[in-house]
């Protein structure tokens, strides 16, 4: 499903505190079936951008469209709920939203709210459980009794159970050990590929960006400073320095070697495999 932002402005409100224009005139287009990384420093407006995508935050000006649905400053509840059904949102530490008595009830919560039938719900619960790599014996357990990694998976299952066309992920691997994090991200990428969904991933880790994403969108002070392919961005060292973003491990090591020898590699290495190949070809000599 295609997503469009048309000169969108938004404020952030928490209790009595209001910050103006945390999203400051953004226009962008996320094509169907793309996997896009959103990066930027804390407070750059990433979470507000995500919230705009499913009407948790309404624009003060401009409009956001998800497929044929459009959200503007007078977003109607009916439209908003339609949008929310389309856009699955995995917040940071999603296990903090678990509340039901059993895992089954918790996963079924979303589908129930969005009006799926009983039979559909049973099927959706089973299916999403499988997709996140859990087995049905977990269904009758209390979500609070699970380990951290399991809770995270259950929470994600609760989101994908509503069959969203767009999946928005806010650091889904945060706080997990490296293996756990990799498993979750790999699983989300598989889900993206098999369901033709449009996926948006917020992350601070450039290794995730190069491993799982096709495109990258950099935010700064409420604006999108660049939106291009992952390789395009990392090929342009000047731009990376200007934007103040980190490097994926292979590229960081490549730059260290280049600094040492004073000789620049012919290609930019984004993965371990690429760096290995370049080194075997003697790029550092």
């Amino acid at each position: 499903m295609q997503i469009n932002f048309n000169r969108v402005y938004a404020d952030y409100q928490l209790g009595p505190i209001r910050s103006k224009n945390v999203v400051d005139g953004i226009s962008l287009e996320l094509a169907k079936n793309t996997f896009t990384a959103v990066v930027g420093h804390t407070g750059a407006g990433k979470s507000s951008l995500l919230k705009l995508l499913n009407g948790l935050l309404l624009p003060t000006d401009g409009e956001v469209s998800v497929g044929d649905l459009t959200i503007d400053k007078n977003g109607k509840k009916k439209t908003l709920n339609k949008v929310r059904k389309r856009v699955g949102m995995v917040f940071q530490f999603p296990e903090r939203q678990l509340f039901a008595e059993t895992v089954e009830q918790d996963i079924a919560f979303g589908p129930k709210n969005f009006g799926f039938s009983k039979e559909e719900i049973t099927q959706l619960v089973d299916q999403s459980l499988k997709q996140v790599g859990l087995t049905p014996d977990i269904l009758p357990k209390s979500p609070f009794s699970l380990s951290g990694g399991q809770k995270r998976r259950v929470a994600i299952a609760g989101i994908i159970a509503t069959k969203p066309d767009v999946l928005v992920l806010d650091e889904p691997g945060a706080g997990l050990d490296p293996e756990g994090k990799q498993e979750i991200l790999a699983m989300l990428r598989t889900l993206h590929d098999t369901h033709d969904s449009t996926t948006i991933l917020v992350t601070h880790d450039m290794n995730d960006v190069v491993t799982y994403c096709d495109n990258v969108l950099v935010m700064e002070k409420g604006q999108v400073t660049t939106h291009q392919t992952v390789r395009g961005l990392f090929s342009n060292q000047n731009e990376i320095d200007r934007l103040g973003i980190g490097l994926p491990e292979p590229l960081r090591l490549q730059r260290l070697i280049e600094e040492h020898t004073g000789r620049v590699f012919p290609h930019v290495c984004l993965t371990q495999q690429e760096l290995k190949d370049q080194l075997l070809e003697g790029a550092h000599l």
Binding site: N81, G88, R96, G110, N113, G158, T162
Partner: peptide, 24 residues
Amino acid sequence: IPNLLDETQRVMDAQRARGVIFGE
């Protein structure tokens, strides 16, 4: 207090995203 406000907002947003409509 700010943390609690923040947390409340987050949980509410998360449940809204799962189809809960508050105030109805």
